[in-house]
Design a protein around this nucleic acid. Structure first.
Length: 685
DNA sequence: GAGCACTGC
C-alpha cells in the first residue's frame, strides 16, 4: 500500500516571495495543515556587537582567544597565578568542568591534576600546592566560601556560561560582589553568550560617578567561531508541533543533502511519540527503496544510560541520524554531525508558588536566547539550517531571556546557605535578579520550624550551622542530624542517599510489565522510604552486582552513586558526632525520624480518596511512581516533595501516625479538640 | 486511577 501523500510547501531562504519556489511532494501520513516555512535572510546566530572599551591587552586576548579559546592562559602568563595564587574557572555542570580542564591541560602540555586541575563533588583532581588553574562547578565554589569566605586563594575567578543564570551561578555572583568590596585585588571575568553583558556590567560596576574612565567593569565582545545557520519560519502558526516535527523530519530527509537532524520537544511523552511515528514512516520508506535510511533515536535524562549513549554513535554514510530530544540537548550534551535543527519553541520549566510551597513543571514558550542556542546546535561542524515551527512574528514576541532559576525555585536551601555565609539580612542581599520576597519569607519560616534559625532569623548553633553543611535540602539534613537520637542513623543515612538518586527503578519501554513485577519485590506497605532502604540493602547483599541490577531492572550507576552519597553523608555525621545506631528491623523508629525532618509535608486522607495537606488543606495525590500508588491508602502520610503536572502529586510517600506529628512537631501542629490536626503558622520576626 | 524538563552541593 502506498503511503498517503500530502503536499508540503516550503521556500528556500533568499527566494523572492512565498510561492515562487518549487514545490515538492513528500510522503506523510498526516492529513492536517502542512508545515510551511517562510523565506528569511540567512542569518548567523544572533549576536550583539558592542563597542569595545579601551582595553590595553585587547589584541593579545583576541589572539589567544582565537588560538586557544581561553583567556585564562593569558592571565597565567601575566602573573596572576604567581606566588601560589589560583585562577578559578566555574562551570554550571560537572562534565563541563572536567572536559574544559582536560582541554586546557592538554594545550599547556600539563598533566591534569597538577598545574591544571578540577574540583567537583566526589571528584577532586587538583593539588592544593601545585594547581594554578582550577576548574570547578559553581556550586562547589559556593561551598568553598563556607571554609574560605573571602576566597583568598584565588587571584582571578572566571564564571563561565553565566548567561545560563543557574541557581548557583547567581548565588556566586551575588557573593562575589560582596567579596570584591573587601578584596580589591580579586579580578572577575564573567563569560556570557548572550545580551546580558550590560546587566552584568551594571551589577558589578562600582563607579558612582558619570565618568566612564572610573568604571570598575568593562565589556569585551568576542565573536564565536560557529558556522552560519539559515533560519526558516512557518508561514502560519503550527497547531500541533508534535505532528509538525514528524513532517519536517520527513521533508528534510526527502529534500536535503547529508546531515543529521536534531529535534527539540518538551518531554519524554512527546519524544517517544515522535520517535515511534518516525520509525513507522522510515519503515515504509525503506520498502520503497529510499537510498538513505533513517535512524531515529530518543534522548532525555530519564532514558537508561546505555540507550542515551547510542545517540553518540556515528552513523554510516548511508544513514541519516535523527535525534529527538528534550532540552537536555540544548546545553548539557553536544551531538556531532547535526546540520538540521527543528525547534518547537517550547520547553518544560520549573515554577515555584511561594504561597503554597509547591513546585510545578510548566510547558512554557522558550526565550530568544534559548531559540538561538537551539539553532546554534546546527552550526557546530558546518553551516546548517534551523526549522522553527513558529512564525517570525511569534518569534518576535518571545521573551529575550529565560527567567533566572533564582526566581522560580524553592529557596529554603539557598537561604540557609546564605545565613551560614554570614548574610544576616537575606532580604537585602544583592541578588542579580531578586527572587520574590514571599519565597524568601516562606523559606525563613520553614527553617525556623526546623530549628535551623531562631526567632530572630539568626542561624542556630549547632543545629543551623550543621544543617547548612549538608549537601541536601534542610529537611533531609534535619532528619539525618536527629537520626542518632531516634536510634536509626544507619538506616536513615541510606534512605537519604537513595532519595537523592532519580530513576532507581528502570522501565525499558519494551519490558515494562516484567520490570514492574521485579520492582514489586522490593515494595513494602509503609511506603517509598523503606522500599528504597530494601533496594539498597539487597544491592549490598548481592555484592553490588551489575548483573543483579540488570535482572531486577535497577539503575546500577544510580546505586553506585547512592553508595558515594552515603559515604559523604556518613563522614558529615561522624564529624558532628551523630551516634551510629540501628533500628534493628523496627520500622516505626525510622518512620518517626522521617517525620522529624518532614513534618511540614504531611497530608491526611480525604473521603474523596485523594489527600489534603495539613498546612493549607490543598488536594494532593499519590504519584504513580510511588509504591503506595494503587494500594490501600494510609490515613496519614508525609512526603518529600510535591510536583504539579496534571495534578498535585506527592513524591516519595510514607505512612505515619498522626500522634507522631503532634509529638515531634508540637511547634508546628496542635491537636484540635475534635481530634483532627491543624497547623500553627510559625513566624519569624 | 496515570506519569519526571534539566542541573548542582
Amino acid at each position: 500500500m502506498a503511503t498517503p501523500l500530502s503536499t508540503m510547501k516550503f521556500w528556500k531562504p533568499g527566494s523572492e516571495a512565498p510561492g515562487l519556489s518549487e514545490e515538492r511532494d513528500l510522503p506523510s501520513e498526516t492529513t492536517g495543515s502542512p508545515v510551511v516555512f517562510n523565506p528569511h535572510t540567512a542569518l548567523s546566530i544572533e549576536k550583539q556587537r558592542q563597542k569595545l572599551p579601551v582595553f590595553k591587552h585587547r589584541n593579545n586576548i583576541l589572539y589567544l582567544v582565537e588560538s586557544y579559546q581561553t583567556v585564562i592562559i593569558y592571565l597565567l602568563e601575566a602573573g596572576w597565578a604567581a606566588e601560589g595564587r589560583v585562577i578559578g574557572v566555574t562551570q554550571p555542570r560537572r562534565v563541563a568542568a572536567i572536559s574544559v580542564s582536560n582541554r586546557v591541560a592538554e594545550e599547556r602540555g600539563a598533566l591534569l591534576g597538577h598545574e591544571v586541575g578540577y574540583t567537583i563533588r566526589f571528584d577532586d583532581c587538583s593539588d592544593p600546592q601545585a594547581t594554578r588553574i582550577k576548574f570547578l562547578t559553581d556550586g562547589m565554589l559556593v561551598r568553598e566560601m563556607m571554609a574560605d569566605p573571602l576566597l583568598k586563594k584565588y587571584s582571578v575567578l572566571m564564571l563561565d556560561e553565566a548567561h545560563e543564570r543557574t541557581l548557583y551561578t547567581d548565588i556566586a555572583i551575588g557573593l562575589l560582589k560582596k567579596i570584591q568590596k573587601k578584596r580589591r585585588d580579586l579580578r572577575l571575568i564573567v563569560a556570557s553568550a548572550t545580551l546580558d553583558a550590560k546587566k552584568f556590567q551594571e551589577f558589578f560596576n562600582l563607579n558612582e560617578t558619570s565618568d566612564p574612565n572610573k568604571d570598575t567593569c568593562g565589556i569585551l565582545t568576542v565573536e564565536g567561531r560557529t558556522f552560519p545557520v539559515d533560519m526558516f519560519y512557518t508561514i502560519s502558526p503550527v497547531p500541533d508541533y508534535v505532528k509538525a516535527t514528524v513532517e519536517t523530519v520527513m521533508k528534510i530527509h526527502e529534500t536535503e543533502d547529508d546531515g543529521d537532524v536534531l529535534a527539540f520537544l518538551t518531554g519524554q511523552d512527546e519524544v517517544e511519540k515522535v520517535v515511534s511515528q518516525l520509525q513507522e514512516q522510515a519503515r515504509s520508506l525503506s520498502r520503497y527503496g529510499m537510498k538513505k535510511y533513517l535512524r531515529v533515536m530518543p534522548m532525555y535524562a530519564g532514558l537508561p544510560y546505555a540507550e542515551q549513549m547510542k545517540v553518540f554513535d556515528r552513523a554510516p554514510p548511508t544513514v541519516r541520524k535523527v535525534v529527538v530530544a528534550t532540552n537536555m540537548a540544548e546545553t548539557s550534551i553536544t551531538i556531532n554531525g547535526v546540520v538540521f535543527v527543528i525547534d518547537c519553541a517550547f520547553v518544560k520549566l520549573r515554577a515555584y508558588n511561594p504561597s503554597t510551597a509547591i513546585e510545578s513543571l510548566v510547558v512554557s514558550p522558550i526565550s530568544k536566547a534559548s531559540a538561538s542556542q537551539r539553532a546554534g546546535r546546527a552550526g557546530r561542524n558546518r553551516s546548517g539550517k534551523c526549522f522553527r515551527l513558529y512564525t517570525e512574528e511569534d518569534y518576535e514576541k518571545l521573551p529575550a531571556s529565560t527567567v533566572p532559576e533564582m526566581q522560580r525555585t524553592n529557596l529554603t536551601p539557598v537561604i540557609l546557605q546564605l545565613k551560614a555565609l554570614g548574610i544576616d539580612n537575606v532580604l537585602r542581599f544583592s541578588f542579580l535578579s531578586p527572587p520574590p520576597a514571599q519565597t524568601m519569607i516562606q523559606a525563613l519560616e520553614l527553617l525556623y520550624a526546623l530549628g535551623g534559625l531562631d526567632q530572630y532569623g539568626r542561624l542556630t548553633d549547632p543545629m543551623g550551622v550543621r544543617m547548612a553543611e549538608f549537601p541536601l535540602s534542610p529537611m533531609f539534613a534535619k532528619m539525618l542530624l536527629e537520626s542518632g537520637n531516634f536510634g536509626c542513623s544507619k538506616e536513615i543515612v541510606t534512605i537519604a542517599a537513595m532519595m537523592q538518586i532519580q530513576n532507581i527503578f528502570v522501565l525499558p519501554s519494551n519490558q515494562k510489565k516484567v520490570a514492574a513485577r521485579q520492582h514489586r519485590k522490593f515494595a513494602v506497605a509503609e511506603g517509598d522510604h523503606l522500599t528504597m532502604l530494601n533496594v539498597f540493602e539487597a544491592f549490598l547483599k548481592h555484592q553490588k552486582s551489575s548483573q543483579w541490577c540488570q535482572e531486577h531492572f535497577l539503575n546500577y550507576k544510580g546505586l553506585l552513586r547512592a553508595l558515594t552519597v552515603r559515604e559523604q553523608l556518613r563522614r558529615l555525621m561522624n564529624k558532628f558526632k551523630v551516634p551510629r545506631t540501628s533500628s534493628e528491623g523496627d520500622p516505626d523508629v525510622i518512620l518517626r525520624c522521617i517525620v522529624a525532618g518532614f513534618f511540614a509535608n504531611a497530608a491526611r486522607i480525604h473521603h474523596s480518596g485523594s489527600y489534603r495537606t495539613l498546612r493549607d488543606d490543598r488536594e494532593l495525590h499519590i504519584h504513580p511512581n510511588s509504591v503506595l500508588f494503587g494500594e490501600k491508602p494510609p490515613k496519614w502520610v508525609v512526603y518529600n516533595e510535591v510536583v504539579q503536572t496534571a495534578k498535585y502529586y506527592m513524591r516519595d510517600v510514607t505512612a505515619v501516625e498522626s500522634s507522631w506529628l503532634v509529638e515531634l512537631a508540637p511547634h508546628f501542629y496542635k491537636q484540635a479538640k475534635h481530634g483532627s490536626l491543624a497547623s500553627k503558622r510559625s513566624r519569624v520576626l
